[in-house]
Computed example of a mutant assay.
Amino acid sequence: MKNTLRVHAALFVVAVIYAANYSLSKDVMPHYMGPFGIVTLRILGAALFFAVVSRLVAPHDRIVGRADNIRAILCGLIGIGGNQLLFFSGLNLTSPINASLLQTIAPIVVVIASAVLLGEKITLLRVLGIGLGGIGAATVILSRAAGGIVYPNAMLGNLFILLNATAFGVYLVIVTPLMRKYHPFTVLARIFLVGAFLAVPFGWRGALSADYSSFPLYIWAEIVYMIVCLTILAYLLNNWALKYASPALLGVYIYLQPILAVLIAVGLGKDHFTWARAGQAALIFAGVFLVSRKPKPAPAAVPLEAMQD
Rank of each mutant, 00 (worst) to 15 (best):
N3P: 05
V7C: 13
A10W: 04
L24T: 04
K26V: 00
K26F: 03
P30C: 06
P30I: 06
H31W: 03
M33I: 12
G34L: 08
S54E: 03
P59I: 02
D61Y: 08
I70P: 01
C75H: 07
L77N: 10
G79E: 02
I80M: 05
I105G: 01
I105S: 03
P107K: 05
V110W: 06
A115E: 10
L117D: 01
I122E: 05
G129L: 11
L132W: 07
G133R: 09
G136R: 01
I141D: 03
I161Y: 09
L172T: 12
V175P: 00
P177E: 02
M179C: 03
K181E: 10
Y182I: 11
V187W: 03
A189E: 04
V194A: 02
A199F: 06
V200N: 02
P201W: 10
G206L: 00
D211W: 00
M226Y: 03
T231K: 01
T231D: 06
Y235K: 01
L236K: 00
L242F: 09
K243T: 07
S246M: 11
S246I: 06
A248N: 10
V252P: 04
Y255I: 00
L263S: 12
I264A: 05
A265G: 02
G267C: 07
H272Q: 09
W275A: 15
A276L: 13
A276R: 06
V291T: 15
S292I: 04
A306Y: 11
D309K: 14
